[in-house]
Nucleic acid binder design. Sequence first.
DNA 1: GTCTATAAGAAGATAGAC
DNA 2: GTCTATCTTCTTATAGAC
Lengths: 205, 205
Amino acid sequence: MNTKHRILDEALTLFAQKGYANVYVGEIAEKVGIKAPSLYKHYKNKQAIFDAIIDEMNKRYEKQAGALNISGMNPSADASVYSSISEDKLVEIGTGLFLYFLHDDYTSRFRKILTIEQFHNKEFANIYTSQYVDGPISYQKMLFQFMVASGAFNHADVDLMTLQFYAPIYMLLTLCDREPDREAEALEMLEKHFRQFSKIYGDTQ
Amino acid sequence: MNTKHRILDEALTLFAQKGYANVYVGEIAEKVGIKAPSLYKHYKNKQAIFDAIIDEMNKRYEKQAGALNISGMNPSADASVYSSISEDKLVEIGTGLFLYFLHDDYTSRFRKILTIEQFHNKEFANIYTSQYVDGPISYQKMLFQFMVASGAFNHADVDLMTLQFYAPIYMLLTLCDREPDREAEALEMLEKHFRQFSKIYGDTQ
DNA sequence: GTCTATAAGAAGATAGAC
DNA sequence: GTCTATCTTCTTATAGAC
């Protein structure tokens, strides 16, 4: 990993902890193991580092965009997978989504930046909502619509079903961002949630 | 409202928008209608303004602590209220909780500060979790335990039930903090959620 | 590309008149 | 209690040697 990349990486970590304003250029440089002025050979100024992080994030987001094939989720995939969805499969899907969001190296740090800057910067607010509310919900909704249509799930109001499925994932995700020690507890609650959800909405029981 | 109080009020608004580091003393002073140096006659320094906000918040929190009698919720109240809880009552309780959190003048601004500073300051992280995760959940849990015991609700795992009840409130609350325009949409979803919840867990249907 | 030295500017805070 | 003037410190950023 070259210096330019390491600057970006350390800056991302620091911005995720403290927010943009609380991080000093000298601090980033120190983490990288150089002096502040050297850093200006790699980036024009502090803002340019931040912008590079955003760019990198956009790149990665596009990469895995339609490819929210996280944990194998893909609503256009073979019907049979979902028409006979099992409780275990639902646990796998939900847990996979949660763990991906929580641990993906770049995603998790960037989410913290979004969290910190959301009230200060409307663009970040939009990205946050799109990535952690509307996005997952519309994706899950597609999946559930398909499952309802194929008879795997029984319910008319897919919006509501999706909200009830996803909201606990979201709440426990933001909890673990704040308190990483509570991951095991969160995973345990989530599994119970998914199994209960499957019992409520599943036709196969 | 005297100057000292107005400083605190304007600072609270600004800190909630930008976070502590992004707000300059001169900016607070300007909002109040004085010059920065005048502000130092009221508070020792910038940190003291911030500390005063925390103090004020703690005072208010204690005031309404056990008195989370928001929207009339009080699990030690007369049994009959909850043993025969109606769907409408559940909607009222849930919506009341949501709207209180969202609109209470002091609470809502302070929640944004907690959101912004949570990764930077462990104390804020603890307050956040206590006020918006563990607190509401343990309160709701008490209520549901009571309702299950009295036969109004049927379910063994009250923890899970509480998570499923509260998580959508939490997610839509943080959504509306970021996007106030979506309040009506959130309220509509919430009402559907509460009615569905009542159908799933209620014995009276 | 990294360093030391340093400029330039911003922001917090004080002094002292009114 | 508010002001203008000013000090101090911190932070970003540049200059120029190696």
